[in-house]
Design a binder for these strands. Sequence first.
RNA 1: CUGCCCGUAGCUCAACUGGAUAGAGCACCAGCCUUCUAAGCUGGGGGUUACAGGUUCGAUUCCUGUCGGGCAGGCCA
Length: 458
Amino acid sequence: MRRIRAEGAGYGRGDAGRGHRVLVEFVSANPTGPLHVGHGRQAALGDAICNLFAAQGWDVTREFYYNDAGVQIATLATSVQCRAKGLAPGDAGWPDAAYNGDYIADIAADFLAKKTVKADDREVTANGDADDLDAIREFAVAYLRHEQDLDLQAFAVRFDNFYLESSLYTSGRVEAAVNRLVALGKTYEQDGALWLRTTDYGDDKDRVMRKSDGSYTYFVPDVAYHIAKWERGFERAINIQGTDHHGTIARVRAGLQAVGLGIAEGYPDYLLHTMVRVMRGGEEVKISKRAGSYVTLRDLIEWTSKDAVRFFLLSRKPDTEYVFDVDLALAKNNDNPVYYVQYAHARICRVFEEWGGDAATLAGADLAPLTAAHELALMQRLAEYPEVVALAAKELAPHLVVHYLTTLAGDFHAWYNAEKFLVDDPAAKHARLALADATRIAIVNGLALLGVSAPEKM
RNA sequence: CUGCCCGUAGCUCAACUGGAUAGAGCACCAGCCUUCUAAGCUGGGGGUUACAGGUUCGAUUCCUGUCGGGCAGGCCA
């Protein structure tokens, strides 16, 4: 307890990662629409894992990678162009592959109004020319990047860097990777395409790198991107993605081994999470970007709160399917587990407010009076905190912190109910206040790892 | 058909990576506010850890098979 109260915000930190750099890539949504609930799970996971690694002493870089030049972006551009020319979904001439959401019409309106949009990594002013597809594409990408910035801001997630897929082409990194693989004899030509021998590295079939039309398949820039990560000095890379992308793992790793640059086997790490389904009014809300009907991350945060959404999404193991029940999250009652933990913190704050003293004066408090079963259990629980954090980082498992905090809060509530802290006996009072203060520190530190606030009043 | 992931109380999930009587919340039942916040606490019922084998002193955990669910299997991303 002396250690907890001496270390304060530093309690639970370790130095296992001191001197090591890790790059965590997450969200990485293409700028074709607002972030949805699945991105939310990824944002919550990614942010928590970055916090966990930072707490272990790692030098952490948070990166958002996005495709700003591919097929989906072309679809986005034509969708906005059609809206700008007055077409709507279902009209004659409206493309089958177009995005149908209302937000496309909003982008078109702003483009025609020659507005300026400023995103985290760019600023674009529209020229209003509905025939200028390149201008429309640039504007639409900036517009949606800005929307995603707002989504991330609402969720209190920040990134150190936005990495553009297009930069891998302009910098020559894609070409260099391909040339190197060819020179090393890791490829062959067949049916007018260039193939990589990924089966030499555990993949179940070889993969096309360069299509017969001369363009590259999507995993080629991905390989170039990960070579860049390695060369930028990140000895460890963690990618957070949906399980629907698990097929790419084998071929990216194969490509990284094939280039023969000494990249560690198993680089990068992947943390895969299942998709989130949304229930409302007892029915599943279908998520379809094409149809334009979907619950965005910002919707969810506005209906409930940043804290509730984060805590909910982090409470389960990433690989178990999660059903987000909007009605449950809206209920704002004790079904919502975040309140249980925050409430413990608020109770402690209230006790200190009532006491009126300065917690710092408790530094030399005699702890001998703490002999009750609840007190011993709570102290033991507090002592476990650093190893829980270390394990959660090692296993990429933020849910361990959620469960720990729930258990810790339970220990505290039980004690709170059994004993009164502000008793007449100064020795007992100071000992109990010291334990309450240590509990408060652990709760604040743990919630901070999850990106959840610790309100002093509820 | 093939590969990966998952299957634990009525429901939603844990279980410190192979250890002692498998734990919480919700729901249900019975109690606790003249006392620092009842968004809380105490007690109770509820389990063949999907099923069948195997390894082990010991299996929810590791192996094999079966059943059920999810995701993949494109010169899409």
